[in-house]
Computed example of a mutant assay.
Amino acid sequence: MTDRYETRRSALFDELPESVETVYVAPSETLRYLSGLSMHQSERPTLLVLSRETEPAAVLPKLETDRVADALGDDVSFYTYGDATDPTRAASEAFDRLAEERELSGEAAVEFRSTRVLEYNLLTDYHDPASIRDLEPAAAALRARKDDSERESMRKAARIADRVLQETFEDIEVGMSERDVERAIEKRVIDSDADSYAGGIVTVGERTAFPHADTGHTKVEEGDLVMIDFYIRVDGYFSDITRTVAVGDPGEKCREVYEVVREAARAGREAVAEGVPYQNVDRAARRVIDDAGYGDYFPHRLGHGLGLEGHEPPYLVEGNEATLDVGDAFTVEPGVYVDGVGGVRVEDDVLLTEEGAEVLTETPRDLRIL
């Protein structure tokens, strides 16, 4: 019986030009997608080798053999090497054995974003660098179309994120620091059914005007905005949510900005439909912000894909003329950031299903005064 990973590996070649004979996959989320293997990059070069006509092969340290065999079964050929003072040289010798047996040549594909020079250099003795293509467009096209199992994992991740966020709101009070708030979130995630807390940003007061600041030690004061943005993983799949709340009355200007962003987020979500260009969803939200006079204060794209990574294709940004397809999962997260005043971002996770746009995150979007 063909398993989901075999099906994905076969489908990958359907997304590539027929001239590509070999695919090399380094440790990455694409490796996990194609094999079920979750491997970190280390000083030991590792490559999964796929071809149209022959069984998979792996160039890897000997100590990883059992784990890879469990994932790929008995049909994989191993080209292993032991620990050495120079693991790169040892890996190169293993790759030479593979190349000799497989007669490697012709066009190949690797994922430029995740493949290090360490692995890439193994290929260049056997493939002209000019013939090596970027695998990411093909891999991204597959990974973007979430199947039923992936969708359910993302729904679960969003449910947990909603619960954690709303419980954390009850903790926030004057005198707490940004780090205090993030620790409260992280503790709740650890105590939940999520795989892990995957990172976040908490900013307070005027620091909310920095779209991507690090969580710091600034303490909450009466009237401050508090922006909370965090990721969690469930079954390897991400949720990503942002809400901005106020501790006491934030003032008329902050209320105005909040309403503009809330309306922009609504417009973005409502623009989601099969066949709509990604850039049009960005445009729908951005139009609201531009019309309100805050266009110069919205410096980032509207959203990014979600899946095995917190940021992955597709990107909802001007210039992306590709169109939304069933199975796409992504964020819709407009923001307005005004120096000396503060910033507001409202972020939701959206899945495009056969029935239309499904908003996975449900935490209320009205301005919450704590």
Results as ranks from 00 to 15, higher is better:
E53T: 15
D74H: 05
S196H: 05
T80I: 02
N320T: 00
E309I: 00
H300M: 12
L47Y: 03
T46M: 14
L316M: 04
G295E: 07
A284D: 06
S153E: 01
A246G: 13
T353I: 05
G340M: 01
P334T: 06
L370M: 15
L34K: 13
A184G: 05
S105W: 02
R301Y: 11
E64C: 03
E362P: 04
S10T: 15
Y24K: 09
L50I: 10
R116M: 10
V204E: 06
L48Q: 06
E6C: 00
E64A: 11
Y297K: 07
A69G: 07
L31I: 14
T168H: 09
I241R: 09
R8P: 02
D14S: 15
R159D: 15
S114H: 11
L31E: 14
T80W: 00
E101S: 15
G305F: 01
A157R: 11
R368A: 07
D66L: 11
R133C: 03
V164Q: 08
D3N: 15
S28Y: 13
V257W: 00
G223A: 00
P250S: 11
R301W: 04
V281Q: 04
E107P: 11
R207D: 08
Y315D: 14
M227A: 13
A144F: 02
E358C: 09
V117W: 14
D125Y: 12
V261H: 02
T115V: 08
G356V: 08
R9D: 07
F169K: 12
L12E: 13
V245N: 08
T218Q: 12
H217I: 10
A99G: 06
V220A: 02
E222R: 02
R269H: 10
Y294K: 02
L16T: 08
V346Q: 14
T361L: 08
G223W: 00
A273P: 11
L50N: 09
Y278V: 00
E347M: 15
S77T: 12
T215E: 08
E43Y: 06
L351A: 01
F112R: 13
L142Q: 09
M39N: 01
F298V: 00
T22Q: 05
V189Y: 07
H212G: 02
V317A: 05
Y297D: 04
Q166R: 15
S196K: 12
V261E: 02
T88H: 14
R102G: 04
A158T: 09
A139I: 13
E55I: 04
R301M: 12
R287Y: 06
E111F: 03
V189T: 07
I172L: 13
G305P: 02
S28V: 14
E309P: 00
A139W: 11
V49S: 03
L63H: 05
V25H: 09
V332G: 07
P314M: 06
G36D: 06
V220H: 01
E270Y: 07
G199M: 10
A11S: 15
S77L: 02
M176A: 03
V260A: 03
R301E: 14
D214P: 06
E119G: 07
V350H: 05
E53Q: 13
T80C: 04
F13R: 12
R159W: 11
L352K: 02
E321Q: 05
L72V: 05
P45I: 03
V338A: 00
V276M: 14
A99W: 06
G305D: 01
A157C: 13
P61I: 05
G205S: 08
F210W: 06
